[in-house]
Design a protein around this nucleic acid. Structure first.
Length: 931
RNA sequence: GCGGAUGUGGUGAAAUUGGUAGACACGCCAGACUUAGGAUCUGGUGCCGAGAGGUGUGCGGGUUCGAGUCCCUCCAUCCGCACCA
């Protein structure tokens, strides 16, 4: 029987589905292992060969762990809320749920063809009410929680109420961590608190909730009609669609992720992720240490608080700059400067993010006419407004030290402001030409800081600032609170209703708050979100619901927990389940989620941990980011002005333009001219200038896979042509998992031929099964155990590509040995089954085993004895260059080896009569002779 | 500008701790076979050279008996962040 992969794969797919081979339950007799893929958004385009790359790797690892005796959880689901389905709905009127359903069916079909060992009974879909009930429930927990800076964890809002009832806010160092400016709470006593109206109490509490409604600058995208989180804005335009984004002061639901900034940073030290992702998260969190200093405004009760990382340069301050949006700008500007300042602020506000970013080199600003008092010298310091100061970072105000900050320097030069040097540079430097920004040198002109090093001066300055009450040491984070509301239809409704304009959380028994039906998926005429179109949609038939929905990352921030207990109707996850499975051991997915999903999931996990709902505070212990697979585009060359195409090698003789041609019409760079003619009516009568052999050769280029480049390779076609096992192995064989690599179908034959060669090991020349029951030869045992060792090592370090070549070497050797030994082949096939499960199942049965039991067989154990050698082919080097080899017994001592080697004819040739200066012998490795 | 990663044949790549550079494949060359199959088998294939041999892991230096691997300088490519005080 020939290797009929279509029949084989079809049979085993059915077998696994019918027998639920990969269904898994908690089993305390086995250690657990949780292997997770980033679940896909089911888009209308379906999967291309790049998508399953990570799934194949995780599936191999999951199967490997099963063979090692672990109880492996390996689930799959869909991140099924999202923009494309909604936009399709706007265009066609088709309900997004329907589109989503269809896309999921297609995805499932594609995934099934590749033979993954998912436990499909655990599938989750973020858009199903059974799932989002619990997304809403977690939102409500966040709404009902605050971050206690004293205990450094999230607590129930009740503990805050208890504090207020007991002692009010006075005497308690309570801060609102808005992430922007720390404001002291309006002081009140316990008695006052108790006397406040319910509305007033709730307003105060809103300042503390982890999910809160607050006014802040948000990214508003008018083209999409919604706000966006920072990670959804790339280079000043929306990540999806590339629409312009502006900053707008709006009341929005937000998540107080900033409260967790330090723990999100610290946690990175405890998880096994790539350095680049960890670094990206560190950048995103952007911790910087320094001080906040208050400068009191002359003639006002106000004071300006600045944040600086260089308190050592405080004596070098020559002006203070406010961001145009800073709330004090309006209040302190003097009458004579009002017009100028207001028009500057107006102009700055109307500039989009993108314009502002594109224009970083233009210096602009305006004097307010106001002055502040320098806290130490009491000198008058002018206050300016400048758009190089960002309202969202630090306090939105800076103390400008032109001598030691590049931007301050440029600003001062541009406006002719004074400049005072306070650090003596440690190397040659002209302070007139550029700022000295290094943290090196000696402090001068600075009273009590004089003669200190920068490092010591920073410490001393903070000390003095604090003891004089001018400010304090402060850690600042770049991280902003995450905007959580979206003015869209296809997302989880935020479980909030309004009574007397105050938001209330919906009671748990009333969840889920399901998406209402609407007539259109567009905003209303008055600019309200689509949910405003729902008729009779009121809480208890009288209270308005919140009309925003949750962002895409809500459902994906906790889905890994729902897999543990997907059908639980009473809890988001059962206590016993989460205690058994705990967090994800291995997470595989793309690195594009570094500052989005991966940060939010960590945040929610830490929150759930604090609230005692789970027992770990990092979701993904180890993560591997698979690289992108690039497409290989093919080109034909159209002679300009003619309907004539010229072959690749002749194209330079003409003036021609390359045109993308569908790769399905190209085989090994050779164009199928007939297919091309039929592609487009214009090409029907085209002329072709071919190579000498009459073929038309296409050019090619490696670029991102996309429909418009006609270079998309779908897994379905390849499964049809070569089988799933070949596709799985080939995707792994392509190169290291984490690397970006070009897709090239040419090499797939090599892997396919390997599987055929393997098949032949089990069959005789008449294609009949032929397996020997005799004892294996020493040689075959050596081949086998060499492979066991390499396979184990390679899988343990996720080197899937070298794993494939190990199998090739093994099968090549066994073929040479004409080995059809049952024992050898059995162990080989167990090792192969994670990579090529279908053929392995088939051959397993041919070896006389029970169908389906290979997935729970025991992974072969390496026995060193079979590799024992009595001699070794020593490479002999002269001055580090390998010259010849000599086979010597491994029992020889270094001295004996030296004698043996030196008396050889080959040696005397290279010694040229000289005596060796030195002979290095590493037993079992190398001989090096220094002449 | 800051940070991260990567540079090895015609191509994808391998070399886990410093120890035979290019495993395994693709492609190509030569040959065999034939039930003409994206089949199988044999041999060859880094570069220069007829050969002996020389040379070779982005460039230049260093450490070492020995460097793709460690250290320093530089170059190139990709990714992330960026007026962040």
């Amino acid at each position: 029987m020939e290797y009929d992969f279509r029949a084989i794969e079809n049979n085993w797919r059915k077998f696994w589905a019918a027998n639920k081979t990969f269904k898994v339950t908690e089993d305390t007799s086995k250690p657990k292992y949780y292997v997770l893929d980033m679940f896909p958004y089911p888009s209308g385009a379906g999967l291309h060969v790049g998508h399953p790359l990570g799934y194949i790797a995780s599936d191999i690892y999951a199967r490997y762990k099963r063979l090692q005796g672990y109880n492996v959880l390996h689930p799959m689901g869909y991140d099924s809320f999202g923009l494309p389905a909604e936009q399709y709905a706007i265009q066609t009127g088709q309900h997004p749920a329907l589109t989503t359903e269809e896309n999921i069916a297609r995805y499932r079909d594609q995934l099934d063809k590749i033979g993954f060992s998912f436990d499909w009974d655990r599938e989750v879909r973020t858009s199903s009410p059974e799932y989002y009930k619990w997304t809403q429930w977690i939102f409500k927990q966040l709404f009902d929680s605050w971050y206690n800076p004293k205990t450094n964890k999230a607590e129930s809002i009740d503990t805050l109420i208890a504090i207020f009832e007991f002692q009010g806010s006075s005497g308690v160092e309570l801060v609102i961590l808005t992430g922007d400016i720390e404001k002291d709470v309006m002081p009140f006593s316990a008695e006052e608190w108790k006397a406040f109206s319910e509305k007033k109490k709730l307003e105060i509490l809103m300042n503390f909730r982890l999910a809160y409604l607050g006014e802040s600058y948000v990214n508003w995208c008018s083209a999409l009609g919604t706000v966006l989180a920072n990670d959804e804005v790339v280079n000043g335009v929306s990540e999806r669609g590339g629409h312009p984004v502006e900053r707008k002061l709006m009341k929005q639901w937000s998540m107080r992720i900033t409260a967790f900034a330090q723990r999100l940073l610290d946690g990175l030290g405890t998880i096994d992720w790539s350095e680049s992702i960890k670094e990206t998260q560190r950048n995103w969190i952007g911790r910087s240490e320094g001080a906040s200093i208050r400068f009191s405004v002359l003639g006002h009760e106000h004071s300006i608080e600045v944040f600086t990382t260089r308190p050592d340069t405080v004596f070098g301050v020559s002006f203070v700059t406010l961001a145009p949006e800073h709330e004090l700008v309006e209040k302190i500007t003097t009458e004579s400067h009002k017009n100028e300042v207001l028009s500057y602020v107006e102009k700055a506000k109307n500039r989009s993010e993108r314009e502002r970013q594109a224009d970083v080199n233009t210096i602009s600003g305006v004097f307010t006419g106001a002055y502040v008092k320098h806290p130490f010298t009491n000198e008058k310091v002018p206050v300016w407004v400048g758009d190089y100061v960002l309202v969202g970072y630090g306090t939105g105000a800076v103390m400008a030290v032109p001598a030691h900050d590049e931007r301050d320097f440029k600003f001062a030069k541009h406006f002719g402001l004074s400049c005072k040097q306070v650090i003596l540079p440690s190397t040659e430097h002209n302070i007139q030409e550029a700022a000295w920004t290094e943290k090196e040198g000696k402090i001068i002109n600075s009273d009590f800081l004089n003669d200190l090093t920068v490092k010591d001066a920073i410490r001393k300055a903070i000390e003095q600032i604090t003891s004089n009450g001018f400010g304090k040491g402060r850690v600042n984070y770049r991280l902003r609170d995450a905007v959580f509301g979206r003015q869209r239809y296809w997302g989880e409704p935020i479980p909030i209703y309004y009574k007397d304009e105050v938001p209330y959380g919906i009671k748990e028994v009333d969840l889920p708050l399901t998406l209402p039906e609407v007539d259109k998926y567009l905003p209303t005429e008055d600019g309200e979100p689509p949910l405003a179109r729902a008729s009779n949609w009121k809480h208890e038939n009288q209270f308005e619901y919140e009309l925003s929905t949750m962002p895409g990352w809500a459902g994906s921030s906790w889905y890994f927990l729902r897999y543990l207990d997907p059908k639980n109707e009473n809890e988001f996850v059962g206590r016993d389940k989460v205690e058994y499975w705990k967090n994800v051991d291995l997470y595989i997915g793309g690195s594009e989620h570094a500052t989005g999903h991966l940060l939010y999931a960590r945040f929610w996990t830490k929150f759930l941990f604090d609230r005692g709902l789970i027992s770990f505070d990092e979701p993904f212990q180890k993560m591997i980011n698979q690289g992108m697979i690039l497409g290989r585009s093919s080109f034909v060359y159209l002679v300009i002005g003619e309907n004539k195409f010229v072959s690749y090698s002749l194209k330079d003789n003409f003036i021609c333009a390359p045109i993308h041609v569908d790769i399905s019409m190209v085989d090994n760079d050779k164009l199928n001219i007939e297919a091309f003619r039929n592609w487009r009516p214009d090409y029907k009568d085209a002329e072709f200038i071919c190579e000498e052999d009459g073929s038309y050769i296409c050019g090619n280029e490696v670029e991102k896979m996309s429909k418009s480049k006609y270079n998309v390779q779908t897994p379905d076609e390849l499964v049809e042509k070569f089988g799933a096992d070949t596709l799985r192995m080939y995707e792994m064989f392509l190169g290291p998992l984490e690397q970006t690599k070009p897709w090239d179908t040419k090499g797939i034959n090599g892997v396919h031929n390997f599987l055929r060669k393997l098949w032949r090991l089990f069959h005789d020349s008449e294609s009949k099964v032929s397996i020997s029951n005799e004892a294996p030869t020493k040689e075959s045992l050596k081949t086998l155990h060499k492979t066991i060792k390499k396979m184990t090592d390679d899988l343990d370090r996720f080197s899937f590509n070298t794993g494939v070549s190990n199998f090739m070497i093994c099968v090549n050797e066994l073929t040479e040995q004409k080995c059809n030994n049952k024992q050898i082949l059995t162990e080989l096939i167990i090792m192969l089954s994670p990579y090529a499960p279908h053929i392995s199942e088939e051959l397993w049965v041919k070896l006389g085993k029970q169908p389906g039991t290979i997935s729970t067989a025991q992974f072969p154990l390496f026995n060193e004895e079979h590799l024992a050698e009595s001699s070794f082919d020593y490479p002999v080097s002269f001055n580090g260059k390998m010259r010849f080899k000599v086979n010597l017994s491994l029992s020889l001592s270094p001295k004996e080896i030296e004698v043996e080697v030196l008396k050889m004819d080959e040696s005397s040739k290279w010694l040229e009569g000289k005596t060796p200066k030195k002979v290095i012998i590493v037993p079992g490795k190398i001989v090096n002779i220094v002449v």
